[in-house]
Simulated scan of single mutants.
Amino acid sequence: MKREYVIALAGNPNTGKSTLFNALTGLKQHTGNWAGKTVTIAEGTYVHKKNTYRLIDLPGTYSLFSNSTDEEVARNYIVFEQPAVTLVVVDATSLERNLNLALQIIEMTPNVIICINLMDEAEKRGITINENVLTKKLGVPVVKITARSKKGFALLFDTIDRLVSNVIQGTPNVVRYQPEIEEKIAKLEPFVRTVVNDTISARWIALRLLDGDESLLQELMKRWNRGEEEILCPQTEHMVHI
């Protein structure tokens, strides 16, 4: 049975994300603007094993903390539109710096593949990366590619196919914070779950509300048609700086 799946491409600027997008979609792409935003959206498709994959090239960002319109657009798409796969493109030559965004995304959704791009440049510099160790540490699939030459694409296609078919599942290793933060998350998380059910990671929302993410609070109020007092738990309201 033929199906269509949505894949979001996320990553820092200059990781080769657009190169990967172009290599996957070829001429089957178009651009426009996000509704109500000046941020450009690029969308394209490719076909694999008779399934159609619709790729959404999210704005390149260094984080998803709502510090800019680009960050809000990328965050909202991953969290609320819930693509079948979020493909996080990272630069093999700056892996440690790039994984900061990857860790933020796997807190939002388990449907993640880490795509380590620019492996040709890494090899020139004598950099070796053990993707199997990274997969175990992160709890999500890790694939090495070079988008310019399409090296590693066969494995990438196969990994995406297995993830959307539930042959494999992401089980992200949860980032643990200081005890006092974990205590506050534990108090707020059940209350958040009553608002969003299991549609979104209640732990992630609790963490962002504790950090005072006003933009996310406004988005939750709009999408769930709830008032501020219905989303903020009385026991924790003083911890959310709004």
Rank of each mutant, 00 (worst) to 15 (best):
D91W: 03
L118A: 00
N12S: 09
R97A: 12
H241I: 05
L156T: 05
R75L: 13
L155T: 11
T171M: 11
R54V: 12
L220C: 07
V174G: 04
K28G: 00
E131H: 07
Y77I: 11
E230I: 12
L64V: 08
S215Q: 09
M239C: 04
K222V: 14
L99A: 04
A42T: 05
I56D: 00
H241M: 11
E214M: 13
M221Y: 08
N67Q: 12
G212K: 13
T38P: 00
N76H: 15
I116N: 07
T93Y: 10
N51Y: 10
A8G: 10
D198M: 06
T93E: 14
K17C: 01
E180K: 14
N98P: 09
R208L: 02
E121G: 00
W204H: 03
R223C: 07
G212W: 11
L87I: 10
V73D: 06
D158N: 14
V175G: 02
K187P: 05
K222T: 15
T19N: 04
E121M: 06
H238W: 15
I181V: 11
H238D: 15
N98V: 07
L155R: 12
Q235H: 13
A10D: 05
V112L: 14
G170Q: 02
N22V: 00
F80A: 04
Q178A: 14
S18K: 07
P59Q: 07
N76M: 02
V192Y: 00
E237T: 14
Q235A: 15
V195Q: 12
G126E: 08
I185L: 11
E189Y: 00
I160V: 12
L232G: 12
I168H: 05
P13Y: 09
K151S: 06
H48A: 02
F191R: 01
G170P: 02
A122Y: 06
T146C: 09
T61N: 04
E131Q: 12
N98F: 10
Q178D: 13
F157I: 05
R208P: 03
G16A: 04
A102D: 05
L209E: 02
T86D: 01
I41G: 04
N173E: 05
H48Q: 03
M239H: 09
A154D: 14
I106A: 01
T86Y: 02
D161Q: 08
A122Q: 06
P59R: 01
K136P: 03
H238Q: 15
K124Y: 07
T25R: 04
A202W: 01
P234M: 12
V112D: 10
S215E: 12
E71V: 10
V88T: 07
I56K: 02
S68G: 04
L134I: 13
I231S: 14
V6Q: 06
G126H: 11
N51D: 08
N51I: 09
L95C: 12
R193M: 14
V175E: 11
R54I: 10
G32W: 07
I113A: 00
T31G: 01
G32P: 10
L101I: 11
M221W: 09
N166D: 13
L220S: 08
F157H: 01
T40G: 09
S215V: 13
A8W: 00
G212E: 14
P83H: 10
T128Y: 10
S66Y: 05
E189T: 13
Q218Y: 15
V140M: 05
M119N: 09
V143R: 02
R162P: 02
N111K: 11
R208N: 07
V85P: 01
I129H: 07
G32C: 07
F80C: 13
G16P: 01
K37M: 03
E180Q: 14
F157R: 01
